[in-house]
């Protein structure tokens, strides 16, 4: 049981895809202009990650190793397209904001990375937990970055404005350059925290 929990928790901090592994960075910068967008993108990716991890783990003995990459691509692309279509139907506003970054889940390195490095070698249950952990690790990172950029850039949080309409905000953080700088400083912050934790233990 402890082993399974480890598969889940590693994605949240030690192997966090955004801050520690630095993979799947495009949506981290592109769709985090608000906390809600970050959360939506994170959950969409988590869904694709869990589904494809489970399926690839189930099929690991069926797929010949020479064609495993095309097979993974088809599986991941199918789930990304399903998310794309379902989101378009039921959450049209969010779908419009996330735009091409929903179909682009298919080329998110996290997906291929977990399929190749984990799901193709492990049991269904631990692959699902690995996917869930990695997905939620990605989600909290995106939501945090989105929240910081939204608070500084638009003076609101989860679309609730807490400053007057006329108040000046740091528009810089809504713009592309602000995305890069926010992520850079957050990574530095994570490094400081991790170094402290290492020293303490």
């Amino acid at each position: 049981m402890g082993g399974l929990m480890k598969e889940f928790f590693k994605g949240l901090w030690n192997d966090n895809p955004t801050f520690r592994l630095q993979i799947g960075l495009c949506p981290v910068l592109a769709v985090t202009s608000s906390a809600l967008n970050g959360l939506g993108m994170g959950l969409a990716t988590t869904f694709v990650l869990i589904c494809s991890s489970v399926l690839i783990s189930l099929l690991k003995n069926v797929i010949p190793s020479k064609v495993r990459i095309p097979c993974y691509i088809i599986v991941i692309a199918t789930f990304s397209t399903i998310v794309d279509l379902v989101m378009h139907a039921f959450l049209p506003d969010l779908h419009r904001v996330l735009g091409i970054f929903i179909p682009l889940i298919v080329v998110n390195c996290i997906l291929m990375g977990r399929a190749e490095a984990f799901a193709s070698k492990n049991s269904v249950v631990s692959s699902a937990l690995d996917g869930l952990g990695m997905g939620l690790g990605f989600t909290w990172a995106l939501t945090l970055i989105g929240a910081i950029r939204e608070i500084l850039g638009s003076g609101s949080i989860f679309n609730h404005k807490f400053v007057a309409d006329t108040a000046a905000t740091f528009g810089f953080f809504s713009l592309p350059p602000g995305a890069f700088v926010t992520v850079g400083i957050l990574i530095a912050g994570m490094n400081i925290i991790s170094a402290r934790l290492r020293k303490a233990s």
């Binding site: 797929i63 010949p64 064609v67 095309p70 097979c71 088809i74 199918t78 399903i82 279509l85």
Partner: peptide, 13 residues
Amino acid sequence: VLTVIAMVSGGLL
């Protein structure tokens, strides 16, 4: 295997 996976994917989509 590739054909079956592609067909299932296409049908599902």
